[in-house]
Amino acid sequence: MRVAILTAAAALSTTVALAAEADLRRSESFDAIQNRIERSVALFGEMAKVITHPRCMNCHPADNIPRQGDDQRLHRPPMIRGGEASFGPSGLHCNSCHGSENLAVVGHDRDIPGHDPWQLAPANMGWIGLSVHEICVQLKDPARNGNRSLADISKHLATDGLVGWGWHLGKGREAAPGTQEILGELTQAWIKTGAACPK
């Protein structure tokens, strides 16, 4: 069943990609910036369009409460991070409601989001309330990024399924800008140019 959905997404990809480039620039469009650091900063600025989008931010809370919707309201029903697994409080896990796929429900204008796994980013990766600069610094800090190298970060952003959900999100909410593929390219280019952070 999941395979079928991925296939359908692929079939749509040409038309989607054209629209996607309009709201997220590809990495090569930054080649004109001569200064390497400036280029790197600009690339991160472009990545930040995705990173600061509600699709990403909603699961990177700093207060252990997930957010919901394009207006980033507090998650309903009330939910908290729970323990280190970031998978909800005792007895009530994220997948009590979130299945392995998005789910259409009758009489409701929004699908119930689904992906396996479905969970919050770790507590030390809380982004809500941080500036783009602060998010960038945190992203590079192994102590606060799940002990990831820059290569790991790149792989995570480019291939992680839950990150990818930001573009495969079902009915009733806005997709993250661009595509996961463009985000992956931007991230690689950012790293190649020295992974500089905006001020």
Binding site: Q68, R76, P77, P78, G107, H108, R110
Partner: peptide, 13 residues
């Protein structure tokens, strides 16, 4: 508000 996601009666918390 058509459902309990945005119509929000008091919860145990």
């Amino acid at each position: 508000d058509l459902n309990l996601d945005t119509y929000t009666p008091l919860r145990m918390t």
